[in-house]
């Protein structure tokens, strides 16, 4: 009985230490994400935002973040003198693909792209990049602080633990004619249909043709079939027993789409003629 008591007490002590360690880790995480920068005072925000209160800080923009499985938002300010301020938001998503997804919705070809993290861009008063599951946003109201923003971005990237991998599916997009930085990850409702779930898309320009290519590559390969079944029923495509090769559907809202179903993915080309579509769907198939 005594032995059991000792064992019980030891187990409880270890458990309590674990709780304290957990507490410490989580607390540290808020502080550890933000590096010190010489000459700047760092003020880490007390509040860590979650999906329930993200609206309080970014208003209606929160809806888009939530659709990419947003987890937490950490905030900080770097202050120098009276007026120089750099505001930092670090959004944590459930995985790097979702971080890329929301980032890809917000980037634009107007910006200057940078090599920080896995991908990034900047303008005169803002610097954004993704690394792992984090989407980092630095902003200022003083365009004279661009160099300081550059330096801080590099430090945060190192602090978080630089990760330069983008989602693997992006590598399957053919390079020829690809509009630079046009790749996107759509988390749900692809093409405007609730059953279509997520997809990667990229824009192309080739010989005067503007077209879009997409790849649906779910973790569960079987779901490709159910998505395709629902879609073919909607577009009234006479589905044969086994779909093979490239086939064309007439989507009433998205135009003609040529599709190719691989073993575990579905690829499509929108807005291109038959030959061009065949070429690109073939390239995707060969890029496996």
């Amino acid at each position: 009985m005594k032995g059991k008591d000792v064992f019980r007490r030891t187990a409880l002590l270890i458990a309590a230490l674990f709780v304290l360690m957990l507490q410490g880790f989580s607390e540290d995480k808020k502080d550890e994400l933000f590096p010190r920068m010489e000459g700047w005072e760092l003020q880490v925000g007390d509040q860590v935002y979650n999906s329930g209160n993200l609206w309080n800080i970014i208003n209606g923009a929160a809806d888009a973040y939530l659709s990419y499985d947003f987890q937490k938002l950490y905030t900080a300010e770097y202050i120098q003198g009276q007026d120089s301020r750099l505001k930092v938001y670090i959004f944590e998503h459930s995985n790097p693909t979702n971080a890329f997804g929301i980032y890809s919705q917000e980037r634009s070809s107007d910006y200057t792209f940078v090599n920080t993290g896995a991908h990034g861009f900047k303008s005169g008063d803002a610097y954004y990049f993704i690394t792992g599951p984090y989407y980092v946003q630095i902003s200022t109201n003083d365009q004279g602080l661009a160099d300081a923003m550059d330096a801080l971005a590099g430090k945060i990237d190192q602090q978080i633990g630089h990760q330069d991998e983008l989602p693997a599916t992006l590598k399957r997009f053919p390079k020829k004619g690809l509009v630079s930085n046009s790749e996107k990850y759509i988390a749900a409702n692809f093409l405007g249909y609730s059953y279509m779930k997520s997809a990667f898309v990229a824009d192309y320009k080739r010989d005067g043709n503007d077209f879009r290519v997409f790849i649906i590559h779910p973790q569960d390969p079987e779901s490709v079939n159910s998505m395709l079944d629902s879609y073919l029923e909607f577009v009234e495509y006479p589905k044969p027993k086994d779909i093979q090769g490239i086939f064309k559907v007439e989507d009433p809202y998205n135009g003609d789409i040529r599709l190719y179903k691989g073993d575990d993915y579905l690829a499509g080309v929108m807005g291109a003629g038959e030959e061009l579509s065949k070429e690109y769907l073939g390239l995707i198939r060969d890029n496996q």
Binding site: G255, M270, G271, A272
Partner: peptide, 11 residues
């Protein structure tokens, strides 16, 4: 539904 859709085609 006669406008040009993204993707270039007309319905």
């Amino acid at each position: 539904m006669a406008n040009r859709l993204v993707g270039g085609e007309t319905l």
